[in-house]
């Protein structure tokens, strides 16, 4: 069911490429129009000032590039909380045993996978 008496008599149906061409041309026309209006109307007054830094001098931001380590820890602490929790509670507990247990468990798993892969490769060729 279609409501009302709709018609598309005001509509020009074009191919997708032609739609892009037409809209781009129209955009270009509007840009020229807006530039003309804008530069005719805008205020000509310009005041030079320093960068707004809440009253601080520029030197406070001259070397604020964060280090790679800060970015890494920022990412781990903010977005990989569960991984960070594992690192703190299971690996870096202060006990060397915990660290060795964690690493050896994963190394063992990797070793088993490597052995299985080796056997399969040998059998299948």
């Amino acid at each position: 069911m279609v409501y009302g008496c709709y018609s598309m008599k005001n509509t020009v149906i074009l191919s997708p490429y032609e739609v892009v061409y037409v809209t781009t041309l129209v955009t270009g026309f509007i840009v020229l129009l807006l530039i003309t209006i804008y530069y005719a109307l805008r205020s000509r007054r310009i005041r030079n000032t320093s960068v707004y830094l809440s009253g601080e001098p520029e030197s406070v931001v001259s070397s604020i590039t964060p280090s790679i380590a800060s970015l890494y820890w920022g990412f781990i602490k903010k977005f990989a909380k569960s991984l960070y929790k594992v690192l703190v509670e299971r690996v870096h507990t202060g006990s060397l045993h915990d660290w060795y247990k964690f690493l050896s468990s994963w190394f063992s798993l990797l070793l088993i996978i490597a052995i299985i892969a080796f056997i399969l490769t040998s059998l299948i060729g």
């Binding site: 598309m8 509509t11 020009v12 997708p16 739609v19 809209t23 026309f29 807006l34």
Partner: peptide
């Protein structure tokens, strides 16, 4: 200005326009 122009020119794709382009 370019951002404004993109929005304004997009109106020819709307059925509201007396010259409506569709595809």
């Amino acid at each position: 200005i370019l951002g404004i122009a993109f929005i304004i020119s997009s109106t020819i794709l709307l059925p509201l326009s007396p010259y409506n382009v569709a595809g």
